[in-house]
């Protein structure tokens, strides 16, 4: 089963040196993510969930411990373009059209023009933005921009999708809609997704596993295997099973003293 483990972290620690002394962003974090998982990381600000994601992406280096992505170091995984990363802000280049933005990783990775065009079309279809290729980012709503940024992360063949609070800045209604779309996209593409959020319903609705984290030092306090089926209509959120998982997440957050400040 080792080949099926996408991310494997052992006693991972990361300490930032700041002017106010060292900050333990991560302390002895161990976790395995299996292929096809949808893993959410939830916790209050400062619990290290984003830092953990950035370590997987080789955007931060751990101070201690081991981490492997696809069986190699995060740096090698990054260089072999093993993952797509979706940031909190869509971060589309304002001087490129939607199509141009999605082409950006493809240009850098050296796909030929015909292949670029084919992929842009297919991912735009996937995120329901067909026909918006020639539009500029400012002509789209916030939710559409975020969908475009997801399409950008899907355009190349990475099996792993790292998402850092991608819907954090969007309103509830748009967020529901995008959550639904993300689930169907995950279904269609068979990707492994690591998803950072601080919304309990979002984490429970989306995930096969929920990793509850707590701050000072950033650590994992609970890992919850979701009993919910893979096929999830939005109204699953009213079922007792859903509420029970949500309750356990809330308990986990409370155990980490996350509500004290």
């Amino acid at each position: 089963m080792t080949t099926e483990t996408v991310i494997s972290a052992q006693d991972l620690s990361l300490t930032f040196e700041t002017n106010d002394g060292p900050v333990n962003a991560l302390k002895d974090v161990s976790l395995e993510v299996e292929r096809g998982d949808f893993v959410s990381f939830i916790g209050p600000s400062g619990c290290g969930k984003t830092t953990f994601l950035r370590v997987m992406a080789d955007l931060e280096s751990p101070s201690a411990g081991d981490i492997e992505v696809n069986g190699t170091s995060p740096a090698d995984a990054r260089k072999s373009r093993a993952y797509g990363y979706v940031f909190q802000a869509a971060g589309l280049y304002p001087w490129r059209t939607i199509g141009g933005n999605i082409r950006l990783p493809l240009e850098i990775m050296g796909y030929d023009r015909a292949e670029q065009a084919r992929r842009v079309n297919s991912v735009l279809e996937l995120v329901d933005l067909a026909g918006f290729e020639k539009k500029f980012p400012w002509q789209l709503s916030g939710g559409m921009q975020q969908r475009a940024s997801i399409a950008r992360a899907l355009a190349f063949d990475a099996d792993l999708l790292l998402m850092d609070e991608p819907f954090g800045a969007l309103d509830e209604i748009v967020r529901d809609h995008l959550n639904e779309q993300l689930l169907s996209l995950w279904e269609k593409t068979n990707k492994t997704i690591c998803f950072v959020t601080h919304s309990i319903p979002e984490a429970v609705y989306l995930s096969t596993r929920i990793v509850v984290m707590s701050p000072r030092p950033g650590r994992i306090t609970d890992v919850i295997e979701s009993p919910l089926p893979r096929d999830r209509p939005l109204d699953i959120r009213d079922t007792p099973e859903f509420l029970e998982v949500a309750h356990r997440v809330r308990e986990g957050l409370r155990a980490g003293h996350s509500y004290e400040d």
Partner: peptide, 24 residues
């Protein structure tokens, strides 16, 4: 964030310059 994004694509220095810094 824009620089990190290019880093996740494994972009080299000249790509960062031509694709991001110069147009920006």
């Amino acid at each position: 964030m824009q620089l990190d994004l290019l880093k996740t694509y494994g972009a080299n220095r000249s790509q960062v310059f031509w694709k991001l810094r110069l147009p920006a």
